[in-house]
Design a protein around this nucleic acid. Structure first.
Lengths: 197, 197, 197, 197
DNA sequence: AATGAATGAGGATTCATTCAT
DNA sequence: CATGAATGAATCCTCATTCAT
């Protein structure tokens, strides 16, 4: 459990390399060999030495992305009070995150696309936990009259999918300006959730 | 070019098996060996015999899904005239498609997630072509005053992502009723696109 | 044994296709699939149907080339009487054969290079038989004082190798004129064999 | 670039095994499986681990043979000064090389027979470069009056082919004494190149 | 006489992982 | 701590051949 400084640094370096490879070349190409090359390591043995297995590495990748994302997104949500402002802030922060860390969310999407398949896996479970929490928040806003009436579960799922899609597209298509896309997507969902008249 | 009856049947059988494997176990597990097993074939050589390569098979998978989807979705859109009705019909038909072919769209999403990465690949290109056409339709509706003002590109991307996400979720989570989710998602985006009164 | 007309024609067609493939793309690429394509056949089954196996086909290829070569070369040798004239005629005819059948000897060289390896094989044996006959002719010429003193076996081997090399080179290198090369090679060996004055 | 001791040793071992297999069983049989067996390795993966691919291995094979041949042949040529003596030494050294390394030149011939087919490949190109250099040497000797008049290109090609043929034959046919064959071949070409009267 | 479908062994290569140093 | 060597299973694919029609 207790990790030395070098150990921690090495792990971070490898995780960073993994994120880069996954984001740029896709999960399928993210072999240990490719990651080692990206990290400037001479052998894949290094990776196996520091991580229990591929799953362990990917788990760390997901953790790192979630940590970084949380650090960026949470304060931006908490800067607002109303549910609609918070939702807008959530969406904008998500998309804008790609400006600061262009690869983190892409890597996350790739990994979860592949490893989220097994419903019993820990990835799927933690994903579901996050969504469930968001569903509760939405329902509270509905109860408070801040949001209209609709299926909270569908909304949360739709936002997740829409954000990922815009992100993926925005990163690869330079025509789509990130800031504009963020604002547009936020407004789009704001219109969708606000109470009737 | 001219294909035998047996040939056509075998190809269809293999494509079907591929769709099943990809949808259920994910693209990563969709090896020739796994697909052959699913199809009840004794060797992977059979697949190589009938398809020029893995790319050829996946191309066929995508084609088959698009064909089936088109047959289901297009008439349901054309049954309506107004842009908002048509958009609702589009979304509902997309999600409901999972009732009839629970695996087709899942397989499509998996394949395009992996193979859509190369921006020069034909998958990415045809994907972009479809989206561009949809963008044009949306812009026409905006010009006609049927939709409000927003970035059409972002809307189209968001809908695609949201539909995929709801589909993926709905298929794996029996709690989410497909018909309800379809209607909810359609209403959600209807609120998002309708003109300000 | 008794072959129908169609059967004979088909075999000839396949042998011809095999010669073309072997000469142009090399023995390694001469798979049944490639040969069938060259012959305009839709399946490799055809080849297996008409030939007992790959060896059978190659045997036929060698036989065809030897037959055609003999028809061209033998009369050109017999048009002369002296041993030195005959040797010159032999070499010139060999090289010039590539003008009429550019691929036949190339194919022969490729096949014998690969299948002549097994010393017990029939290819190696018939090759040795031909050489032995040529050695006898040379020795007779030496006994008659038409050729000088040297190891007949080495001469025959050297001529075979030199002719093949010039042929291979001439076919691929358009700079080397076949007629010139033929004459030059003939003169070269004539100088090598003539008796010391 | 920088290679370990073990790495270098393993590569050498594999190259040696490849030479043996190619020389004895022919290029066609020289699969990784066969080479691994010859080298006493348990898996073909080992070979792929140490070499970038089959081409890499064969390149190394050719390089090794050329290196060994050069070390043997060059000093034996340089021990003489006149062009005719040097040519004789060149031929004798080539053939005698088979006494010391019976398999090296055989392997080289096999590999170049197959891979020299592609005129753009590096094998064909370096082969052509060597020949061109030899052609220049021959022309210089002609200009100096040491050799008679003839097409230098044809001579060089013929010598190469004759040497290869004698080598191939001598190795397989124990009747042909290598030393005798070497001397005979050298004398043969000496008669062919010496100036008239 | 011919065909196309099927087979299974064998091809090179990549993979994550283990282990001795 | 780190490394490079080794492993063997798994990847897609091609091969010559067989067989039912």
């Amino acid at each position: 459990m207790a990790r030395t400084l070098t150990e921690t640094a090495r792990r971070a370096q490898i995780v960073q390399a993994a994120i880069e490879v996954i984001a740029v070349e896709g999960y399928a190409k993210a072999s240990f060999a490719r990651i080692a090359k990206q990290a400037g390591l001479s052998s894949t043995g290094m990776i196996s030495y520091h991580f229990a297995g591929k799953e362990d590495l990917l788990h760390e990748v997901v953790g790192e992305v979630l940590r970084v994302s949380g650090e960026y997104i949470v304060p931006r949500i908490e800067a607002h009070t109303g549910a609609r402002d918070r939702l807008r802030a959530f969406i904008v922060a998500n998309v804008e995150l790609a400006t600061v860390y262009p690869q983190h969310l892409l890597a996350l999407v790739e990994v979860l696309n592949v490893l989220g398949d097994d419903p019993q896996g820990q990835f799927a479970q933690s994903q579901r936990a996050v969504m469930e929490a968001q569903v509760q928040v939405v329902r509270a806003a509905q109860a408070a009259g801040e949001f209209g009436e609709f299926d909270a579960r569908v909304l949360v799922t739709a936002i997740r999918g829409a954000v990922d899609a815009v992100l993926t597209r925005a990163v690869k298509d330079p025509e789509l300006d990130l800031a504009t896309a963020a604002r547009e997507l936020a407004e789009l969902f704001d219109r969708a959730v606000r109470p009737a008249n």
